[in-house]
Design a protein around this nucleic acid. Structure first.
Lengths: 117, 117
DNA sequence: CGCAACTATAAAGTTGCGCTTATATTTGCA
DNA sequence: TGCAAATATAAGCGCAACTTTATAGTTGCG
């Protein structure tokens, strides 16, 4: 069972979800292997309740799926939602080669509107 | 333990910077062409002061650099800092293929709880 | 059944964020 | 010189985020 009922009308943002360093660490951990909240909380200084809240946020934007196993719940990583970040990053990727950046600099210093001569 | 003691003043990192949709829009705009704060503010509903604050945050994590031109200031995009996000994303990219996700599933269902049979 | 383990959720406090209004500083121009 | 333009910064407000303490709901096992 993945998840049945979800609080509607309010879908969280992936970008906001990965803004918190604890949540990024949670994602890195369960990307290697799915874990229970208790096992996750042992890796951090915060309480299990705090970890549980982080997991809830990650679940709401579908970065994490849960799977019940008895009275334990294994959370595992859903990589597909992370694509959204990568797709947004796509518009910048052509700009972070050094040669292109330097060219950009020169053009900006000359005239703001003179690309593509 | 993953979480070290990080002073809250240094919590201004790239991930938090791109968490705000207005800041993401600012980055997308100046990635195409460097702009002044006034020109930027015309694209949004908020005041110029609010845009100025967003720019300050983006500058603090070096996603944006400024260049004075008379009494105007042209802000342009610094793509290099965006690499940090891409590098963090790298650990998940191999999980985006469906075939790998299914393999992960199988391993998860087999592995946990070998002790205490 | 009854208790312990595992987890979620509610409540309350503190901090941080984003916005607006108001003020200050620098530059261009008549 | 004096004023307008462009921008930054300070102060204050409302609200959302993060954490802890406390409470409640399932599940496994004797």
């Amino acid at each position: 069972m993945i998840r049945g009922t979800m609080p509607k009308e309010f879908r969280r943002d992936v970008f906001q979800a990965i803004a918190d360093p604890t949540r990024r660490a949670i994602l890195s951990l369960i990307a290697l292997q799915s874990m229970t909240p208790n096992a996750l909380a042992e890796h951090f200084d915060t309480s299990r309740q705090a970890v549980s809240k982080h997991i809830k946020i990650l679940t709401e934007c579908q970065l994490v799926r849960q799977e019940s196993a008895g009275r334990e719940i294994y959370y595992h990583f859903n990589a597909k939602q992370m694509k959204e970040v990568d797709q947004w990053l796509e518009q910048f990727k052509k700009l972070w080669e050094d040669r292109f950046n330097q060219l950009d600099q020169v053009l900006i210093n000359l005239k703001p509107n003179d690309y593509e001569d």
